[in-house]
Amino acid sequence: MKLGRVVGNVVSTVSNPLYDGRKLLLCDLVDERGRDVGDYLIAVDNVGAGAGETVLVLDEGNGARQVLDWPEGAVRAVVVGIVDRVDLG
């Protein structure tokens, strides 16, 4: 999984039917210190993550489909957790 930070969301009324009503979060990808690594992902929200929160992004189709229970869903990136804290050794 990847660490990300929610920096917005994507509004889309015309989309693949599975995406109807699902929140699409715009997530910067960040490193273990929360620094922007210069990439982003659009991820389907599954935990109610809010703007500015550090999140866990699962970026793999099979896992995403299981998490969302979309057996045939065209989905890869799903927000699967909200990070409370990162402790580095």
Binding site: V7, G8, V11, V14, S15
Partner: peptide, 12 residues
């Protein structure tokens, strides 16, 4: 997968 109406940026 979808057409974007708007990208709402909110760093929070």
């Amino acid at each position: 997968v979808g057409i974007v109406d708007e990208v709402h940026e909110d760093p929070g």
